[in-house]
Nucleic acid binder design. Structure first.
Lengths: 233, 233
DNA sequence: CAGCGCCTCTTTGTATGCAATCCAGGCAAT
DNA sequence: ATTGCCTGGATTGCATACAAAGAGGCGCTG
């Protein structure tokens, strides 16, 4: 990592995305500086960056706070994301897969297939599947060759806590269904069924969103939301 | 404007979007500080923000440079934007228009209708139409009630020079067509024809993108791209 | 006792000095 | 002539001191 500013940015981003700070938590510059053993300058740079990324909220003369995502926000984000992933599949279908990307996807699907043999949904399985799922979607995005789309999708996937929780809420049946969706998307793309690829991809993400929103809603109702002060990373 | 940092950010953003700096121009902190009569601190904050917004590129220890948009980039952005505007129309169609939004759109359409009577495509007409066009799209976005979508679309529309040039390349025929598209989108939405609203909106943006890319390509081939040093705002 | 305003303390905003890095140009050796 | 190295100038990165804005408590007044 070249500069302290960047290093701090990454650490903080990870902390926020990992859910280390409850939504609404105010991030005190001095505390963070102490905790990370740098001055306020790189801290401020990092905070400003993360705010622009949409992870923090900024109020002049009042500082930065971790953005809270209500179920309704997640819903809105997922509608967009589903649409974009659909577009992504369509683009890839239109322009075809390079040998490299086809190989990568094939490998992911093979490993996913193997994962179907597990007997129960443990945290370990959850982590394995998260990795496979990420690889599948990231490869597709890369294959689309559209940098702007990639950026949008990255933003649509960067939600605190979500990647930690998402797959804990899975079960074997859902896994099977998700894997099947992936296979079908791949088949549609290689088979030149562009519209079908788009539909399945969109529906795939949308469905996954529905499940998440449901769980998120339960969490929401349990949390009175925040206002607490930050503790260090 | 509360803080100097924010004020500088806005000024700089406007300058970059307005095309005051050629693509690739390096932005020197001291020069900017002098020009805007503040210290380097708020300048750095602004640069960092704009980089996160995607208008500038950052290289550690080397500073910020205005991002260059090649025709291919514009193409990628417009594919995404078309899709998102389509989604936007669909959402509005699904959940219906509030009286306020319906009124706003109606007003825009009425004024646009009136603009059809001009005899030639002057810069003045161009500015009027840009305003009407912005109002139409912004109202639709607002009516969708999806903050994330709004953010994505804002990002997809923030391209240096584009808003300056876009409508200079128009002509009366294109204006008529664009206005007609708007009318049809409005009609489809109020008529509950959700799918149709989406299709027209997507196609409307896509077409407009095609025109722009064509012109952009011509510009691209004339420019040897940059490396120049910045002059102040 | 309630409401208002002041005052202080906390926290953020800005300026500036110094350190670290990078880049260009020149010089020398191959 | 080309390549590699070195050095000086320019520019960014960081820390810190000081200024200013906000939030909350306290006392004063009605």
């Amino acid at each position: 990592m070249a500069t302290r500013g960047l290093s701090v940015t990454n650490k903080l981003r990870e902390a926020v995305l990992g859910g280390d700070y409850a939504g609404g938590t105010r991030l005190n510059e001095v505390d963070l500086a102490d905790a990370l053993a740098v001055s306020r300058t790189p801290i401020r740079a990092a905070l400003s960056t993360l705010a622009a990324e949409g992870l923090l909220e900024y109020r002049p003369n009042s500082g930065y706070a971790v953005k809270t995502f209500a179920a309704k926000d997640i819903e809105g984000i997922y509608v967009v994301r589903a649409n974009l992933e659909g577009l992504c599949a369509r683009l890839v279908g239109q322009q075809g897969l390079s040998d490299v990307h086809r190989g990568l996807l094939h490998k992911v699907l093979a490993e996913s297939e193997e994962l179907q043999n597990v007997e129960s949904w443990t945290d370990e399985v959850s982590d394995l599947w998260r990795d496979l799922n990420d690889r599948f979607h990231n490869t597709l995005i890369e294959a689309s060759g559209n940098a702007h789309l990639a950026m949008m999708l990255r933003k649509s996937r960067a939600i605190p806590l979500l990647n930690q929780l998402k797959f804990r809420w899975f079960d074997l049946e859902t896994l099977a269904r998700a894997h099947d969706d992936h296979s079908q998307i791949f088949a549609a793309i290689t088979g030149g069924q562009v519209v079908r690829a788009e539909s399945i991809a969109e529906e795939h993400v949308y469905r996954s969103g529905q499940r998440i929103i449901e769980h998120w809603r339960k969490m929401d109702s349990r949390k009175p939301a925040a206002g607490t002060k930050a503790r260090a990373a």
